[in-house]
Write a protein that binds this DNA or RNA. Sequence first.
DNA 1: AAACCCTGCAACCGCCGGCAT
DNA 2: TATGCCGGCGGTTGCAGGGTT
Length: 222
Amino acid sequence: MRKPCCDKQGINKGAWSKQEDQKLVDYIRIHGEGCWRSLPKAAGLHRCGKSCRLRWINYLRPDIKRGNFAQDEEELIIKLHALLGNRWSLIAGRLPGRTDNEVKNYWNSHLKRKLVEMGIDPNNHKLNQYPVPPQPHHAATTSMNVACKLRVSSTDNDGVSDAASYLEDETHAAVSNLDLDLTIAFPSSPIKINEENQKKTAPIARNDHEEQYTVPTLLLFR
DNA sequence: AAACCCTGCAACCGCCGGCAT
DNA sequence: TATGCCGGCGGTTGCAGGGTT
C-alpha cells in the first residue's frame, strides 16, 4: 500500500493566495529548487510538496512566457504532437517558456477543435475527408500548415516512439530546429478540405463510405 | 436582471520510472 | 532482487468568468 504523497490533514488545497506565492518564490529564490517534499515545511507553507512544485513550474517560474500562443508555436505543437502524441512535457520542452500544463490545456481547448474543424483527426493526425479533385491551394495549408510531411531525419521517421526517443536523447538536444516540412503532400490524389463539404458530410454518411475510400494518411505514418 | 451554458485554465490525483538501500 | 521514496507526467476535475437565452 502506497503512502499518500503528504499528510492530508492541515494541508491547503485549491487556489494559491498571494502570500503563499510570495513564500514559495522567496524560498526558492534563496534555496533553489530542491526536495519538494520537505520544501513546504521549510518555506512555512501548508501545502503538499507536489502542489508547490506544480505551482512553481506552471505559474511562478520567472522564465514562463504567458499569453497567447503565436502562430509558429501552434504549428510546432501540432507537428510535435503528430510525432510524440500526448507527451506534453517533451512537447513543452521544445517551446521555450511554455509548460506542459499550458501546452496540454491549449491543445485540448483550441488546437484539438481546430484540427477537427479542418477535418483532421487530432488523435492520429489523419485526414477524415474524402478525396476531391485537386486544388491549387489547400485550405489547410493556408490556415494552419498542418503537419503532413515531416522530416525528422533522413531515414528514421517511422513512428512516435522513435521520434520521441530521438527527441529525448540529450545528444540530439541541439536539434531543436527540426526540419519539419509542413506542406500537405498527397502523393497520388490530393484532396481539399472544403468547409461546405465538411458540413454536408455527416459522420454517419462518412462511415458508409469508409470501405470504399482509402483515407489519406500523413506521410509520417505511412 | 436572472438563469443557464460554455470555455479556459489552474490545480489535483493517481500512476510510473528512477534511484537508493 | 525486493522494497520504499521521490519527482515527474498525463488525465481529469472544479471553478471563475464571459456569453447567451
